[in-house]
Design a protein around this nucleic acid. Structure first.
Lengths: 348, 348
DNA sequence: TTTAGCACTCCAAATATTTAAGTGCTAACA
DNA sequence: TGTTAGCACTTAAATATTTGGAGTGCTAAA
């Protein structure tokens, strides 16, 4: 259901209601709107408009004699209204935040973990919402170096460093006879053949080799290559989360039971990672409002997520999770600016 | 201030009040105590005793005509009373928990991260409080293998695996001319000389070598060794935290502002790590009640912490953080049993 | 030292009362 | 036809009032 055509005045009223409610979470009355947002019609007129908006599903009345509260649909309309122009804006305050972040990031350029921790913390700090960042998927990076370390007889620890300097390790089973020397040779082989190559590409190539070996030559070598192939697969699991305590005191979460459920879902990570992985494919800032969220437990929230890139390749996402009645204007500006800052740092 | 001598009956009354308050967070009256805990005296007598206990600082009366509430001192007295015998107890329910945990841990034996994650999650699950675990300090483990990886000109990533299979990495500056081959040689040198040695021992030995080299031979080699020494130092930073959402719905945290502060402090980690490092030196279960906590923000909580060991060497701590009015008996049994289970797994 | 008994205190829950904000509707107006 | 003034009506939230009961402290007697 696409937006019904609303005339200019009606739009203004709707946006005014949303903004007013964002500012203070209380049902908004017609007189208040009229005065505060400088409409030159009397409150009864506004009242009629608001009544229409309610019929269209943009507003909701908690009870007969109360003012009105925006629905998710209203937030969506509001965001669509302000989105384009907001991207162009930049307040002095936000400039300050971004400059400070950029400076810090430059120093952390070489340590991805600190880099993303700092980003999410700053984002949370600046907005008082929850800051998130999804690290680059290993498969989107290239192999810098691998090392295989024999550990306790039948185990091998594979340590992989990618071109972003992110170190990952994986414990895999191996047949006990294999020696550290053989493992080192294997590592040398992989390093000299595959450095700078994408992980999926490497696995693919290994797959072909395995097939060849299996058919024509050495089954053992095929086995080792298989292990190696395994060692180079990493599922995405690095999600940084900062500032959970920041969203606790928002009036929107006065219900502890709800807060608890949210905290549980967020701590779980899996769902969020999946959500952000989709967005990471995307090219633009994505805004998810309330009901639109595929994660049911988070439908009382809104999410603003932006991919960050290296040059033109999207690597991951940074995101902001806050109440539906968040200050979208500010939040969009910040997420946008932070993503740019991160992109710049990574593209240097 | 050590415990004043209380006669047997007074002790029983005090413990009864504490237990009753733990069960239900409401001021406890004299008649209730008399009936529920089977005292063969009339309520007025209990009343007199409770009045005495208030004078001694064990109980507190929210207002004149209310029952009484235990103070931190009362909890301390209660815990001291039940502690010894509690260690010997073991309910069927707890046995179940521990068996299930032990089974899981055995499977995760080779992956320390999962091992500790599972432990804290189970602990939180079983108690509905907050489960924590401090990983073994790198300096308390021995070197299994190290690898130096050249990264971006003047950086080296040191990847260290200790005898617990924990992989750590550290980014250090190095002079740009150093080649990967030289780094590999260095790693070979360290691996063949120091495998199985304690980290502090290695650093100490390197220190001597550096001195020698500097004085007699090659300044460059001294530099490299220095870098190597740096690479082998890790401050403690691995604290697992599970189940924050579990403590949210406890009546003790109905004040969101307080909960927020607690969440913030816990997320901060530093303070907790410091606290647990001290306890890790200790040999026994340590219980910290309210005021006794050196961390001011956590004075509305109690902590039960137990070191876990490998054979007889204490490695780290697992701990439970909950409200002061927690079920100490159950909590102590669980922490104790979980620590044993972890110790067994690690000592196998 | 313990107990019975009683006056007293104070909270908490239930109930009533007031207040204020905001609506919907009608009739008049431009 | 859209807008406005005016007014009756609704409702929640704030405030005040009442009531019940749990629990105490004290006193005098056992």
């Amino acid at each position: 259901m696409k937006n019904i055509m609303l005339d200019e005045r009606t739009k203004r009223v709707l946006c005014a209601v949303v903004e007013s409610y964002i500012e203070k979470p209380e049902p908004v009355g017609s007189r208040y709107i009229m005065k505060k947002y400088g409409f030159n019609v009397c409150s009864a007129t506004i009242r009629n408009i608001m009544s229409d908006l309610e019929d269209e599903g943009f507003l909701f009345q908690p009870h007969t004699s109360a003012g009105r509260v925006p629905t998710d649909r209203a937030y969506r309309f509001y965001v669509d209204c302000i989105f384009q122009e907001t991207l162009k804006l930049q307040s002095a305050e936000i400039k300050r935040f971004v400059e400070s972040l950029t400076k810090k990031l430059r120093k952390l350029r070489n340590n991805m973990n600190s880099l993303f921790l700092e980003t999410t913390q700053s984002l949370s700090q600046a907005t008082k919402y929850l800051g998130l960042a999804l690290l680059p998927e290993t498969d989107k990076t290239t192999l810098h170096r691998v090392d295989f370390i024999k550990f306790r007889d039948d185990l091998v620890i594979a340590v992989v460093v990618n071109d972003k300097g992110i170190v990952k390790n994986k414990i895999i089973k191996a047949y006990p006879e294999i020696t550290q020397q053989e493992l080192s040779n294997l590592a040398d082989f992989v390093n000299s053949n595959y450095q700078g190559k994408a992980f999926d590409e490497i696995r693919e190539d290994l797959f072909l080799r395995i097939k060849r070996e299996k058919i024509f030559w050495d089954k053992l070598i095929a086995k080792i290559l298989k292990m190696c192939q395994q060692a180079l697969y990493f599922s995405r699991e690095d999600l940084y989360i900062s500032g959970l305590y920041n969203i606790m005191h928002l009036p929107d979460f006065s219900d502890i039971e709800k807060l608890r459920e949210i905290a549980k879902t967020i701590q779980d990570r899996h769902l969020l990672i999946k959500l952000f992985e989709n967005i990471s494919e995307n090219d633009d800032i994505k805004i998810i409002i309330g009901d639109e969220n595929p994660i049911e437990e988070l439908r009382s929230l809104s999410i603003i997520a932006s991919p960050y890139k290296e040059r033109d390749k999207s690597l991951g996402v940074i995101a902001l999770v806050g109440p539906k009645r968040m200050d979208y204007q500010r939040a969009i500006m910040l997420v946008n600016a932070f993503a740019k800052s991160l992109t710049d740092t990574l593209s240097e």
